[in-house]
Computed example of a mutant assay.
Amino acid sequence: MGSGQKVAASAANTVKRVHLELGGKAPVVVFDDADLEAAAKGVRSAGFWNGGQECGSACRVLVHESVAKQFTELLVREVSEISVGTPGTGDDVEIGSMISKAHSQRVLAALDDVRKDGLTIAVGGNAIEGPGYFIEPTVVTDVPAGAAITSTEIFGPVVSVETFSTDEEAITRANETPYELAASVWTTNSARSLSAPRRLDFGTVWVNSHLVIANEMPWGGFKGSGYGRDLSVYALEDFSRTKHVMYNHG
Rank of each mutant, 00 (worst) to 15 (best):
G2L: 07
G2M: 10
G2E: 09
G2W: 01
G4H: 01
K6F: 13
K6M: 14
V7M: 15
V7E: 15
A8S: 13
A8M: 09
A8W: 07
A8I: 01
A8P: 08
A9C: 10
A9K: 09
S10F: 13
S10C: 13
A11I: 03
A11W: 05
A11F: 08
A12K: 09
A12T: 09
A12R: 09
N13F: 15
V15I: 07
V15F: 09
V15S: 11
K16H: 12
R17E: 12
R17L: 08
V18S: 14
V18F: 11
H19P: 09
L20A: 02
L20T: 04
E21K: 03
E21N: 05
E21G: 11
E21I: 14
G23M: 01
G23W: 05
G24F: 10
K25I: 06
K25H: 08
A26Y: 03
A26N: 12
P27V: 12
P27E: 09
V28F: 10
V29Q: 05
F31M: 15
F31I: 01
D32Q: 08
D32P: 04
D32S: 06
D33R: 08
D33Y: 07
D35A: 02
D35E: 03
D35R: 00
L36K: 00
L36N: 04
E37R: 08
A38S: 14
A40M: 04
K41E: 15
G42T: 06
G42I: 10
V43L: 00
R44W: 01
R44D: 05
S45T: 05
A46P: 05
A46W: 05
G47W: 08
W49A: 07
N50T: 02
N50M: 03
G51R: 07
G52T: 00
Q53E: 11
E54M: 14
E54K: 08
S57Q: 08
A58F: 02
C59V: 00
C59A: 13
V61T: 07
V61P: 04
L62Y: 15
L62H: 15
V63W: 04
E65P: 09
S66P: 06
V67S: 10
V67Y: 10
V67Q: 03
A68Y: 13
K69G: 10
K69Q: 05
Q70E: 10
F71C: 05
F71S: 10
F71T: 09
E73Y: 08
L75K: 03
L75Y: 01
V76R: 02
V79F: 00
S83N: 06
V84G: 15
V84W: 15
T86S: 07
T86C: 03
T86A: 15
P87K: 02
P87G: 03
P87D: 06
G88D: 14
G88A: 09
T89P: 04
G90R: 00
G90V: 02
D91E: 13
D91L: 07
D92Q: 03
V93W: 07
G96E: 12
G96A: 15
G96R: 06
S97V: 04
S97Y: 06
S97W: 10
S97T: 12
I99P: 13
S100Y: 11
S100T: 12
S100A: 13
S100K: 04
K101H: 15
A102I: 02
A102Y: 02
H103R: 00
S104Y: 11
R106A: 04
R106W: 05
R106S: 08
